[in-house]
């Protein structure tokens, strides 16, 4: 729904709008620790990365933070992380468990930081299908979307949504084993407000570009918690969704880490479903609405 509003505004406001580069002097701000990482129910080495914030126009990769003590506690056991490269800390191979709350503790440069996150259950994916829109309906649309690389395929989800309200989903897509949605704004996400307890039948949740028949497509569904879901929306609101004066005043995204650090520590569960792109006549034509 929000997307429709944005589209409307964009069309109306930018009918005659133009852009040009703008020179602005920005003050420096104090440096914050940035913590990112997660633990999932997949048996693997889970990673936490520590970096520092920088001035807005610093235009260099984020400086890493080495030599920190990093551990994760699940209420019973403590897992210590080892620094495998500058600023990147890793657990031993292990799997998170649904229902447990994980607490991240970090000691870096004399300061301590912590964050907690609950690992929620994720419903299994029954199957995926592939869909497309018939763009010949609107010639203009194709010209406007010249950067879309055809064929352009939507991934449709079939899964049962659990009856408990308060589920939050993120969807990633892999093409031939490579993560396609590798940038935050390519993630797709939804809460279960409108779908709670219903069967999700051929729901459009991701897309892939430049698909060939026979490609292997993997849909990944993550069940995350409400704080992270809101955090993602805030990140996008302050970046790609930023509508200037049409939006409220900008504000820093609110993560879950204590002591003024930026970033987020997430515990999530994940399910995957892999399928081969079938012949074009098996693609489902999607309705415009």
């Amino acid at each position: 729904m929000k997307k429709i509003i944005y589209i409307t505004f964009i069309l109306l406001i930018f009918i005659s709008a133009c852009t040009e580069d703008f020179d602005v002097e920005l003050e420096s701000t104090y440096i914050r620790l940035v913590i990112q990482g997660s633990i999932s129910d997949v048996r693997t080495a889970h990673q936490i990365s520590l970096t520092k914030s920088a001035d807005y126009f610093s235009n260099t990769p984020a400086p890493t933070v080495t030599g920190a003590t990093v551990s994760i506690n699940d209420g019973e056991n403590t897992f210590n992380l080892t620094e495998i490269s500058d600023g990147l800390y890793e657990t031993d191979t292990m799997a998170g468990e649904v229902g447990k709350t994980y607490t991240l503790s970090i000691n870096s440069e004399g300061e301590t930081y912590s964050a907690s996150s609950k690992l929620n259950f994720c419903a299994p994916i029954d199957s995926i299908n592939f869909g497309f829109y018939d763009y010949s309906y609107n010639e203009e649309e194709i010209e406007d979307s010249a950067d879309i690389k055809e064929p352009y395929l939507y991934v449709l989800l079939n899964a049962m949504e659990p009856e408990t309200p308060g589920d939050y989903y993120l969807w990633n897509v892999y093409k031939n084993g490579v993560l396609e949605s590798d940038t935050l704004h390519e993630l797709n996400f939804s809460d279960d407000y409108f779908i709670n307890g219903f069967y999700m039948y051929d729901v459009t949740v991701q897309y892939v570009e430049e698909v060939s028949v026979g490609d292997t497509i993997t849909l990944e569904m993550q069940s995350v918690n409400e704080e992270y879901y809101n955090y993602i929306i805030q990140l996008l609101s302050e970046t790609v969704w930023n509508m200037g004066p049409l939006d409220g005043p900008p504000a820093n995204p609110v993560g879950n880490i204590s002591n003024g650090a930026m970033g987020f520590f997430l515990a999530y569960s994940v399910v995957q479903f892999t399928d081969i792109v079938p012949e074009e006549d098996e693609w489902i034509e999607l309705e415009w609405y």
Partner: peptide, 13 residues
């Protein structure tokens, strides 16, 4: 005034 990186994006502070 500041920035950090998350999910391959630069997030403003």
């Amino acid at each position: 005034t500041g920035r950090y990186e998350q999910g391959n994006m630069i997030i403003p502070i």
